[in-house]
C-alpha cells in the first residue's frame, strides 16, 4: 500500500493553469502563420508552389493562406526567400466560420461564443460524441489527451460520451471516407437537436492531404452545418481546448 502512496507524492499535481494562465508551448511549435505580403517579390510564387495542399493563393491583396487546408508543415516558410511567411507559436486558431480560416491582411476572427440560448443549454455541460472518419489517429490522440490530468477537460463540464443519444454534439476527425459516410451520418442523426458539430483537423475541414481522393468526401464541412472549426495537423491540445472554451464563452473573446 505504501508504494502507490509514494508514487502519488512523486507524481505531483500536474494540471495546467490554462486558461487562467498562458499555456507553455514548444518554441518551435508551428501555430498560426504570419503573412507580410509587402515583402513579397513581384511574381514570386515560392510559398504557393511549396504547399502540399494548395492552401496558399496569391492574388491582388497578396498572399492568402487557408488554415482549413494547412498542415502546419514547415514548407512555405522554408521556401519563402524574404521571410514574408512565418510560422508562429500562436495557438489560438479555432473559428466559427469557414471563411474566417483564410488568413489575409484582415484581422483574424477567432471563434465566437454560442448565442445566449444555446449557451444556456450547453455552457456548463457539453457532452460530445467523437467520430473518426478516416482520421490518422493524430487528431484522435490529441483529443484523447484532453481527458488526462494535464488538461482535465471534466473541470469545464465537457465530456466525451459513448452514445450519440447522450451527446449534445459531434466532433468529427478525418476526411470522411466513403466507407464511414453512412456511419457518420447515422451518428449525426442519433444526436438529438439542437446539436453542435465541430470539425477538427485539416482532414475534417477540407480533406487535408486526402482532398480530391475519390475514396473520401473532403471533410465534414458541407455534410453538416459546422459550428466550430479547429485547424491543425493535428491541432495542439491547447488549441483544441481553447476552441472548445471559446465556443462555450468561457474565454473572454477579447483575448
Amino acid at each position: 500500500m505504501l508504494k502507490p502512496l509514494l508514487a502519488r507524492v512523486h507524481q505531483k499535481y500536474r494540471t495546467v493553469g490554462f486558461p487562467d494562465q498562458p499555456p507553455v508551448l514548444p518554441d518551435r511549435m508551428r501555430g498560426r502563420p504570419e503573412i507580410d505580403s509587402t515583402k513579397c517579390p513581384e511574381g514570386c510564387r515560392s510559398c504557393a508552389d511549396a504547399c502540399p495542399t494548395e492552401a496558399i493563393t496569391i492574388g491582388d491583396k497578396g498572399v492568402r493562406l487557408d488554415l482549413g487546408r494547412c498542415l502546419f508543415c514547415p514548407e512555405c516558410e522554408r521556401a519563402c526567400p524574404e521571410g514574408a511567411i512565418r510560422m508562429t507559436p500562436e495557438h489560438r486558431l479555432a473559428v466559427s466560420r469557414r471563411e474566417a480560416l483564410v488568413l489575409g491582411p484582415e484581422p483574424f476572427q477567432l471563434a465566437q461564443a454560442l448565442e445566449q440560448k444555446t449557451r444556456k443549454l450547453f455552457g456548463r455541460s457539453l457532452k460530445l460524441r467523437q467520430v473518426s472518419a478516416g482520421g490518422c489517429n493524430g487528431c484522435e490522440a490529441d483529443v484523447n489527451v484532453l481527458n488526462t490530468v494535464v488538461f482535465d477537460l471534466g473541470r469545464f463540464g465537457i465530456q466525451f460520451v459513448a452514445s450519440p443519444r447522450h451527446a449534445d454534439g459531434l466532433l468529427v476527425t478525418g476526411p470522411v471516407t466513403c466507407n464511414m459516410d453512412s456511419a457518420l451520418r447515422a451518428t449525426y442523426e442519433a444526436v438529438p437537436p439542437p446539436r453542435l458539430v465541430i470539425a477538427l483537423g485539416a482532414c475534417a475541414i477540407s480533406g487535408g492531404p486526402y482532398a480530391g481522393h475519390p475514396e473520401q468526401r473532403n471533410g465534414a464541412d458541407g455534410l453538416f452545418p459546422v459550428d466550430l472549426y479547429i485547424p491543425g495537423c493535428p491541432p495542439h491540445p491547447i488549441t483544441i481546448l481553447d476552441g472548445l472554451l471559446r465556443l462555450l464563452g468561457r474565454i473572454d473573446s477579447s483575448c
Partner: peptide
C-alpha cells in the same frame, strides 16, 4: 476493417 480507407497507395 476498411472504414479508414483513403486511397493512399494509389495516390
Amino acid at each position: 476493417l476498411g472504414y479508414q480507407h483513403r486511397g493512399v497507395e494509389r495516390a
